[in-house]
Nucleic acid binder design. Sequence first.
DNA 1: CCATGGTACTTCGGTATCGAGATTCTTGGG
DNA 2: CCCAAGAATCTCGATACCGAAGTACCATGG
Lengths: 165, 165
Amino acid sequence: MDEVDRIVSAWRHERPDLDVSPMEILSRVSRLAKQLDKARKATFHNHGLEVWAFDVLSALRRSGEPYQLSPTRLIGEMMVTSGTMTNRIDRLVSAGWVSRHPDPADRRGVLVRLTEAGKQKVDDALAELLVLERELLADLTAPQKRRLTELLRVLSTGFEHDDEA
Amino acid sequence: MDEVDRIVSAWRHERPDLDVSPMEILSRVSRLAKQLDKARKATFHNHGLEVWAFDVLSALRRSGEPYQLSPTRLIGEMMVTSGTMTNRIDRLVSAGWVSRHPDPADRRGVLVRLTEAGKQKVDDALAELLVLERELLADLTAPQKRRLTELLRVLSTGFEHDDEA
DNA sequence: CCATGGTACTTCGGTATCGAGATTCTTGGG
DNA sequence: CCCAAGAATCTCGATACCGAAGTACCATGG
């Protein structure tokens, strides 16, 4: 019995005419994401890092050498607007964690590159993030985690498909 | 193969020393929530409603007659700060969807009550929200939905338990 | 080789949030 | 009854985001 069970049962009492079962899944997804964000924020705070900053730095880190991507690419990966991304990059440059370089192949373009300091920061933070995430998943058995992953992937591909429309 | 599969496989290539499998679940939860928010925003926009407004109105609606709750109670249900809630209530009062009343049992307290206009608004929006949510879940079979619900509930109770610490 | 439509990024104004502190009132012990 | 501790709400400054408009550049058809 969690908070969503209470919410759903309240709806069933007030609106017995409606089928509110979709909330059993989707309200849980929303609430879990919100709590996850808070946990992440607390973890990164120990590293003087914000969640949004980690998101950008980690996208660059996992892209591999030379750890650089265009703003457009970053926008796509983290689902924010272009204005937001410009602003994030500005602040990361000020912090010394990334640098901007003109794209030699396209003079409109920019390449955002991880600095050595940025790489260290994100590698440290990633290790701690994974510690946190493992804790949060501790109540699930290995087969449960596999099943959950697969079900979420089905949902995810449905969502991504809808986005294009 | 969804975006999280690509992210995870990039990490495995760059950091084969780390076990990034927790992301298979938790990154999907985050991304799904973000996409869900966008879909909700689009749906509510047809009703001239914001997501935050629906959250408050729906909490009042499902609480049943006389459709009133204290700000403290609302804060608990939607995991926002007290400052945020004061601000939300102010705007809902301006819109004519809720009204503030002194709590007769505690002079520090306030009761936020749904107006008739607010009740109509939220009932209309709820119906459309459920249409959207059913569409988003259309790729899942009934047994898959049941399994997913149960697995998310396990995760959820773990998270809620951690919060208290 | 120019015009046109499209892409990449930035700028800027508006908005919603958090977090910390202030205010008002309640509660329990002495 | 009084006081201290705590609770409920509000205030306010700082932050990050979105969305729309602006600038610079690319690419294609004629």
